[in-house]
Amino acid sequence: MIRFAHVFKSYPNGALALKDVSFLLNKGEFVFLTGHSGAGKSTILKLLFGEQRPTQGEVRVANFVVNTLRAGDVPRLRRRLGVVFQDFRLLADRTASENVAFALEVTGARRDTIPARVMRVLTQVGLASKARAYPRELSGGEQQRVAIARALVNDPPILLADEPTGNLDERATRGVFQLLREINGGGTLVVMATHDLDLVRQTTYRTIELRDGGIVFDSAVDEVKA
């Protein structure tokens, strides 16, 4: 589903963000990307949703080769991905349901199907009762649930989460993480970048640890060897 083959990424200022990164993520997996900030987690996510291109090596995501992706194909790739950010990225002047509906409107979904699809995902994330609330009326955890609902509304086979619990307290963190696990239980490949090691240790999910742009540990590989 996702394949990195000897990927290097350097920025115009000469900084090397990724050094020879290779991994294969399969359908239905739950994978943690860990490491200090600047280790390369964000760069990997940006390559995954076509925000950036690798300098060397090959990135494949859901039948798309990111290296040779034309500008016009980036939107098609992104409709196969859900993306969640640390800062939620909700529109302040729209309600929870409008924020979710926005993702359908801008991708040209049939208008008469939108309300039902929005309610379905809002129910899935446990926020059906707050559909008409504006982001400022919601707690951090609830806002992140709205963002997750927006990421899911197009039924993507892959969900990317960039520090989704970074701005949340412990209770909300547990709730959001539980929600991501449920989504994964439905067969969605979830890639979660985090530096919350407590969360990582709670589970036996695959963990890829990065340091200075290179993989220093991949539980799927290293534990087999050991």
Binding site: F49, V74, V83, R89, L91, V106, T107, G108, R150, N154
Partner: peptide, 16 residues
Amino acid sequence: AREIAIMRVVGASNWF
């Protein structure tokens, strides 16, 4: 900028 960034992340086409 915020709205446009979100549009792009959720897969709005360039022409949209």
